[in-house]
């Protein structure tokens, strides 16, 4: 390894649970990964795999009072966010860590003008005058390449298209020049051509502002195009973690392989039978101690065994070493 790559964020054995009528559900089950400075880390998995809960645990935006972090550490620039005070986490969230949500319409307040919402971030985090905050907000809109920003400042969210709204949400997240941005399915609600615009914008802003990104998505195409490192989650756990090129070239876990093979691509012959993963994503309520993917495949051997270990099998390539699912 040449040089020292600094990790801006280190998530270590994070456990997040939800209190429900059916008892305590473990949505995030000892998740560990790191985010190197200036890099993009993708978290990929199907619905209910715990990818969003992982991200929201980092900034402590869990639904209250049901969601609780029960263990582990989230080290951000030397501070443990799990144990930070509420005041401290509020300062960090929106300040040093920006968050981009999936649904731009619900992330924006429909009764306030765009300008007021963007300026508010500066008012809260920078304690500057109204006038300065307004100017800074106009600058932000320019930065996310919104045409005629001065006019747009006076618009309400419903005046804008989905792509424009997502640009505003990005402007909000980046307003305080954060060193880490958490983007939860930022382009899922958008059309492909608009998705391409937004991903391009994020990549450009990332290199301009030198920030790290955690990108949560279910789309392996988006992961392949934008991420340096990939974390694959299944059933609340990380099953595999590697550099993007390594992961796509040498997937080692049966689940990662299954996911990669089940997507139709432009290269596959038309109407060919796609490989599938049988069954469906296991409900968190059916918690097993052993291998969760064996549970989906209906392999009793893997379910009854102890929880598989998580090992670095080649430099930077980590995989859950269940004897059935780990296929070197």
């Amino acid at each position: 390894m040449t040089g020292v790559t600094h990790n801006i964020l280190e998530v270590d054995k994070l456990i997040t649970s939800f209190e429900t009528d059916r008892g305590l559900l473990r949505a995030v089950d000892q998740v560990s990964f790191v985010v190197p400075e200036g890099k993009t880390v993708g978290i990929v998995g199907e619905s209910g795999c715990g990818k969003s809960v992982t991200a929201m645990s980092i900034v402590r935006l869990l639904p209250q009072p049901a969601g609780k972090i029960l263990g582990g550490r989230v080290m951000f620039k030397g501070r443990d966010l799990v144990h930070a005070s509420d005041a401290e986490i509020r300062r960090i969230r929106g300040g040093e860590i920006g968050v981009i949500f999936q649904e731009p319409m619900s992330a924006l307040n429909p009764v306030h003008r765009i300008g007021r919402q963007v300026a508010e971030v500066f008012r809260i985090h920078r304690k500057i005058t109204k006038k300065d905050a307004w100017d800074a907000a106009t600058e932000m809109l320019k930065l996310v390449r919104i045409p005629a920003p001065e006019m747009r400042m006076m618009d309400y969210p419903h005046h804008l298209s989905g792509g424009m709204r997502q640009r505003i949400v990005i402007a909000l997240a980046l307003a305080c020049r954060p060193s880490l941005v958490i983007a939860d399915e930022p382009t899922t609600a958008l059309d492909v051509t608009v998705q391409a615009q937004i991903l391009d914008l994020m990549a450009r802003l990332q290199s301009e502002m030198k920030m790290s990104i955690i990108l949560i998505t279910h789309d392996l195409g988006v992961i392949a195009e934008t991420c340096d490192e990939v974390v694959v989650m299944y059933g609340g756990r990380v099953v595999e973690r590697a550099g993007a090129e390594e992961l796509f070239a040498h997937p080692l876990h049966a689940y990662t392989r299954g996911l990669l093979h089940s997507i139709p691509t432009l290269e596959k012959p038309p109407k060919s039978i796609l490989s599938t993963i049988p069954g469906m994503v296991a409900s968190l309520a059916d918690h097993v101690h052993g291998c969760r993917f064996c549970q989906r495949m209906g392999r009793s051997s893997g379910i009854t065994r102890d929880r598989p270990g998580f090992a670095e099998v080649s430099p930077g390539h980590w995989v859950e070493t269940c004897p059935e699912c780990y296929q070197p």
Binding site: V192, A196, D219, G221, I223, A224, A244, I263, T265
Partner: peptide
């Protein structure tokens, strides 16, 4: 433009994109 915008699930094959301005 539509075709070039599809993200390819292969990091080796990052294609040049035709970026469209504006919306429908």
């Amino acid at each position: 433009a539509l075709l070039s915008a599809i993200p390819s699930p292969d990091p080796q094959a990052r294609r040049a994109k035709i970026l469209l301005e504006g919306d429908v």
